[in-house]
């Protein structure tokens, strides 16, 4: 089947030639294209920034449900499963040994691990200059500016059946380790999204 240059045609499907031949090549301005790709790149970066946070759930942790939830922000993750406490998937204590400790006590391994994680994140932020970029992006978007100590945020994923005493010992240790904010991971009541 023959192919034709697009354009106006008469009733015999012949191109109108009275106005001269039209070019089928459309030119794109290079400047406009560069602008377009810049906008696209910024959009993708911002989109990733807001929705790219993925929280892995441990198989042996059943999160509690809540209705008033907020989106999680990037943070160091502490998991309190039925058998042990993990920081970024590395075990730091068993639940049995935590239960033997008095009410107000720190978990030394957890504290050391969290402080190490904070040091690594602080160094990473410093080298990448991310905090300044984040602040600039947030200011441009008109959202709340990131605080300098945001890297000290911790997300606690605890099993819903865990006793509050154990969770409080973990919270106390995190505070002693110098965290800036503790968030609790929960499932939304509809069971679709998590905070």
């Amino acid at each position: 089947m023959a192919s034709y240059v697009p354009g106006r045609r008469d009733r015999h499907n012949r191109p109108h030639s009275s106005r001269g031949k039209r070019s089928a090549v459309a030119m794109l301005s290079l400047t406009a294209m560069v602008d377009m790709f810049t906008v696209l790149a910024v959009f993708l970066l911002q989109n990733y920034q807001t929705t790219g946070e993925v929280i892995e759930l441990s198989d042996d942790v059943i999160l509690p449900k809540a209705a008033k939830v907020r989106e999680l922000k990037p943070a160091t993750v502490v998991v309190i499963s039925k058998g042990q406490i993990l920081v970024d998937k590395i075990p730091v204590a068993t639940i049995d040994e935590v239960k033997t400790l008095p009410e107000i006590s720190t978990l030394p391994n957890l504290q050391a691990r969290i402080q190490d994680a904070f040091k690594v994140l602080e160094e990473k932020n410093r080298l990448a200059g991310l905090s300044q970029i984040k602040q600039a992006v947030n200011q441009a978007r008109g959202v709340e500016t990131a605080k300098p100590e945001d890297y000290k945020r911790v997300t606690v994923q605890a099993d819903k059946a865990m006793d509050a005493g154990t969770v409080k010992k973990v919270m106390y240790t995190l505070t002693e380790a110098g965290d800036s904010e503790i968030n609790f991971a929960v499932l939304r009541d509809d069971g679709k999204k998590k905070e």
Partner: peptide, 15 residues
Amino acid sequence: VDNEVPYEKMILGMD
């Protein structure tokens, strides 16, 4: 929160 109360109830109270 009392130490023996399940963590789930702490979240319930916060909610």
